[in-house]
Write a protein that binds this DNA or RNA. Structure first.
Length: 723
DNA sequence: ATGGACAATGTTTTT
DNA sequence: CATTGTCCAT
């Protein structure tokens, strides 16, 4: 196969490894995705295995899509029929097919993190427990851990009194899930694994089907996932895993990098292949990365090397506070773009906590420069989006109590708390799901189980129930988009959410964005839509097309690469995070997180340390991150504060009341486009960064070599365009 | 039942 | 400080 020539000897060895277990330990930027895709191509093209018999699992949809795409590039249509997806999506598919063996039906809904907390709160309420003493978050973490260890409530490990209580909550939580025909994220893995464990004939079926199993980011697997993989590979034992223990950053989610060690123990005939050559970064960046990660005890030492040359030194920059830090980041990006040293899309800004994105966003907004932000929660966590999804989920599965309770009085239809409490207890007594009773009430205008409800409430509920009936009947033939349109129309959602304020308008625009998304599921249908929406990862929301800087957490950065990387907020307490101070394992993970961030950079790396940080509105002095002390000074270059003019160079103040023009109002055409060179009689030569039309004029952001960033109105400034 | 005013409380990372 | 929840008046 001629494409093998494009690989180095270690990569070739991995791709062409024979049958049996293979463990590839791949350093950052060592071409592990390439190895995985070539391996799949090799199995199909060279070993003659049909794609149907191959399973490849990843952790994000984005990674899965990328792999699918690259395999197709290598093989063309021959690649069709591969099973390639995330752990969770693959499990969901198996569970829908095998639901007959399990305590739920194939039309289960998937509950997200938010719904899970709602369920825990409900369980606490049902058991009359104090949510202050048993915070929903901590209880949920305990449940999640148990599920990762494949333990149902009966097998919940008990070590103290608190565990007894948590066990009862867990038990109630599972009952609530069962009553709603719902599964949470962890259930997807748990039930698939138990299915394989308890039904040998099912296990056999899948193990015989998947002649080859391939796994990406193996260090991120938890107990359930690892056990599942062993079942799936139990017949052929052709299991090919790729990972890097130094990039294990999800221990808090149950991931256990020691699965890499277990793998070698459980499959003693494993071929171990090391990929050390880095194709991404300059040697300076790799040297810094190694200096940081070498401090972690008990790891297999790995040398990272590249033939890309030494490259520039790593820039370390101290600012007065986090505001200035953000301003410096934005200005540096603008300067490098203006000098044509880089494109806007070549930049990424990484931080430890999501809250840190705010100042950065403000700085970009202030400079009028576009950016993109990684984070599914930002969109799917919004109230209006959750409402609409809940409506759709309810239609798909009327037993979904979480969704029912969410929307039964949204928009308000006079069904209040008291009515609902009574309704729920009546449903419990009649041993049927509240949604079922509601449907019955809608059909007959009467339900024998709901006699105790006051008349006014019954009328409101009957009307809603009747609508739900219609939607359910239509759901069969209607595509997700049309169904969503009907619901929006019939409940008059727009007038509920769009109250005329800016916020209301934005909320409605979000609904329209979801509508656009639903439009992509005309053929694939409601189930797939709901499933994809439930299982999006933050990384999946990163637009790859737009050529603008990315803002993202260090966690979300894994697997990505950028020419220029800023890591901001390098203070003790943030990175490493204060919550890990007293936990050695946690501190090691913080260090790996820093390592992941560093190794995303191809050419230039900026490490930023603000001297003060504002928390809760007050600015407080900070302590420099202890990790910085591990970097030898000769690898670093300090960038001074001297010639900065952020404060004076930007007279523009963003204004909330600034009118935005619709298409019809646009009377002029833009004259300046990003990248164009201009000459200004006073400010000299500059480069256009951004331009937009406003009030019959064109507002242009220009970076001038001599005076920095300026915002000018085209009609007033006597600028010349240069060629 | 609904909406407004005020208080408390919080910041880790996410499939 | 900025969001979220809780209480109270309508």
């Amino acid at each position: 196969m001629e494409f093998l020539e494009r690989l180095n000897p270690q990569q070739q060895q991995a791709v062409q490894a024979g049958e049996g277990p293979v463990l590839v330990l791949a350093g950052p930027g060592s071409g592990k995705t390439r190895v995985l895709t070539y391996r799949i191509a090799y199995i199909i093209g060279e070993l003659g295995v049909r794609p149907y018999h191959i399973l490849a699992v990843t952790f994000t949809n984005k990674a899965a899509q990328e792999m699918q795409h690259r395999v197709e590039q290598l093989l063309g249509p021959q690649a069709h029929g591969l099973t390639l997806g995330t752990f969770h999506a693959t499990c969901a598919r198996i569970l829908r097919r095998e639901a007959e063996h399990l305590p739920f039906t194939s039309s289960f809904v998937i509950y997200d993190a938010d719904d899970q907390l709602t369920l825990v709160r409900q369980a606490l309420d049902d058991l009359n427990l104090d949510p202050k003493r048993y915070t929903p978050q901590s209880v949920h973490a305990a449940i999640s851990n148990a599920k990762n260890e494949l333990a149902l409530p009966d097998e919940f490990p008990l070590q103290n009194y608190r565990d007894e209580v948590v066990k009862r909550i867990y038990s109630r939580y599972q009952d609530l899930l069962a009553g709603s025909n719902g599964l949470d994220f962890d259930d997807l893995l748990l039930w698939t694994t138990r299915l394989m464990q308890e039904f040998p004939e099912v296990r056999e079926k899948y193990a015989r089907r998947f002649e080859h199993v391939l796994v990406d980011e193996f260090q991120d697997t938890n107990m359930a996932q690892y056990t599942l993989l062993k079942h799936l590979a139990s017949f052929y034992r052709n299991i090919f895993v790729v990972g890097d223990t130094d990039q294990s950053i999800y221990a808090w989610r149950g991931a256990d990098y020691r699965n890499v060690l277990r793998f070698e123990r459980d499959f003693p005939d494993t071929q171990v292949i090391l990929l050390e050559q880095n194709y991404r970064s300059t040697q300076s960046i790799l040297d810094v990365a190694m200096a940081v990660i070498d401090r972690n005890p008990a790891r297999k030492p790995k040398r990272l090397f590249t033939d890309r040359g030494q490259g520039e030194k790593i820039l370390i920059h101290e600012t007065y506070d986090d505001r200035e830090e953000a301003a410096y980041v934005v200005e540096t990006i603008a300067r490098l773009v203006a000098s044509q040293a880089a494109q806007p899309g070549d930049f990424a800004v990484m931080y430890r906590t999501n809250a840190q994105s705010r100042l950065l966003e403000e700085a970009f907004l202030h400079a009028g420069l576009p950016y993109k932000l990684v984070g599914a929660q930002r969109f799917y966590g919004r109230r209006e989006i959750k409402d609409i999804i809940a409506y759709l989920r309810l239609v798909y599965n009327p037993e979904d109590e979480v969704s029912l309770l969410r929307v039964i009085n949204v928009p308000a239809r006079g069904i209040g708390e008291k009515t609902l409490a009574l309704f729920r207890s009546l449903a419990q007594k009649s041993k049927s799901a509240p949604g079922r009773l509601l449907l019955e009430l809608g059909r007959n205008n009467h339900s024998p189980h709901l006699e105790a409800l006051p008349g006014r409430a019954v009328a409101a509920m009957a009307q809603f129930g009747s609508r739900l009936n219609t939607w359910c009947a239509q759901a069969e033939e209607l595509a997700p988009l049309s169904l969503m349109d009907r619901i929006l129309e019939e409940v008059d959602y727009r007038s509920y959410i769009d109250d005329g304020t800016d916020e209301g308008r934005e909320r409605w625009e979000n609904v329209m964005e979801l509508r656009r998304l639903a439009g992509e599921y005309q053929e694939r249908g409601l189930v797939t839509f709901l499933e994809d929406v439930a299982l999006v990862s933050d990384q999946d929301t990163l637009e790859t097309s737009a050529n603008v800087p990315s803002l993202l957490t260090l966690h979300a950065a894994k697997g990505l690469e950028f020419a220029n990387v800023f890591i901001v907020g390098l203070n003790d307490g943030l990175l490493p995070h204060a919550r890990s101070f007293d936990d050695p394992e946690g501190m090691q993970e913080e260090r790996r997180l820093f390592y992941v961030g560093i190794t995303r950079a191809k050419d230039r790396l900026y490490l930023m340390t603000p001297l003060n940080r504002s928390a809760y509105g007050y600015s407080e002095p900070t302590v420099e991150s202890r990790f910085l002390k591990d970097i030898p000074v000769e690898l670093l270059e300090e960038v001074g504060l001297s010639r900065r003019r952020t404060r004076t160079s930007s007279p523009y103040r963003p204004d909330r009341w600034e009118p935005s023009l619709s298409h019809s109002q646009r009377l002029i055409e833009p004259q300046y486009s990003p990248g164009a060179k201009v000459f200004h009689p006073v400010w000299g030569e500059g480069m256009v960064l951004n331009s937009r039309l406003q009030d019959d004029d064109e507002i242009v952001d220009v970076f001038f070599a001599e005076v920095g960033l300026k915002r000018v109105a085209a009609s007033l400034a006597k600028m010349e365009r240069k060629i």
